[in-house]
Amino acid sequence: MDSSIKSLLHTAITSFEPLDLARQMAPHACVALILRGESEENLELGFIQRAIRPEDRWSGQLAFPGGKREAFDVTDLDAAFRETMEEIGVHLNSQELLGRLDDIQARKAGTLLDFYIRPFVFYTEQSFNVTLDANEVADYFWVPLKHIRDPQRQTIYKVQRENMSIELPAVYLDREPPLWGLSYMMTLNLFERLQKLLK
């Protein structure tokens, strides 16, 4: 590792064996959680805001760049690289990889689906020249980790799904809607890994 903060992050991420759902189900997506910053105090995490599309049930939601692994993707990491490039125009590389978080099973209206998401964590020192795929992504933005952890930003998001109103934990990131759902859960998993580092 080429910097002290990167080394600390790598150690924190890889000190846990990630939950692996590959044996239970095959279809999955791969996403990229990208960190940047010179020290523990100023680390930031990158998010996308999905494009507004009436046919997309996740229209306008906050998420991480990524998408479904395709047959032509040699590895899961290749899928994360490809999707990040397609969605935000950023070339990540294996030298920036810190490790994996737990696989997380997708769900719809509280029902678990036969599909999971595999999150990869990266640390970058490159200056991003973001080029958005306007059909998929409305914005890419950075949020300080200390903002995400701020108790004042914790909130409840009401989700209307198939005649049901569900209240879920979320965090307000100065835009609507707040961060909730699977991306929120992945972010919590990241903080679990970095708990000692961020104290």
Rank of each mutant, 00 (worst) to 15 (best):
V143Y: 01
S127T: 14
G60K: 02
A138W: 05
D139F: 07
T124P: 01
R149N: 03
R53A: 09
E86F: 11
V143F: 03
A80L: 04
K158S: 11
F128E: 08
A109C: 14
L101W: 05
L113A: 12
I117Y: 10
R107H: 12
E86P: 01
Q152M: 08
L132A: 08
K108E: 11
G110R: 09
R57V: 15
I104R: 04
V74E: 14
I148M: 02
W58S: 13
N93K: 11
A29V: 08
Y157E: 07
R107D: 10
D78T: 15
C30I: 03
W142D: 03
R36F: 02
K68I: 12
L113H: 10
A79H: 00
D76K: 02
V74Y: 10
H147V: 04
I117Q: 14
E96D: 11
G67T: 10
N42M: 11
E86C: 09
L77M: 12
E40P: 01
S127N: 14
G46Q: 04
G110D: 09
E86W: 11
W58H: 15
S94M: 10
F120R: 01
I156H: 06
Y123W: 08
E70I: 06
A106I: 04
F81I: 08
L77F: 13
L145P: 00
G67K: 07
E96V: 06
G60I: 02
D114L: 07
Y116H: 13
V130I: 13
D133P: 03
I34P: 00
R36N: 13
E136T: 14
E55Y: 11
Q105C: 06
F141W: 02
W142H: 06
I148Q: 00
V31R: 00
M25F: 07
I34K: 00
I104T: 06
T75K: 06
F115I: 06
I88R: 01
I34C: 02
N42Q: 12
I48S: 01
F141T: 00
R57Q: 11
L112K: 10
A29Q: 07
T124H: 05
A138D: 14
D56K: 07
L77Q: 11
E125C: 09
E125K: 13
E83L: 12
G37D: 02
L45Y: 01
F120V: 10
I48T: 15
A71Y: 08
A80D: 05
A51E: 13
Y116A: 09
P27R: 04
I156N: 09
S39F: 09
T155S: 12
F47Y: 15
L45K: 01
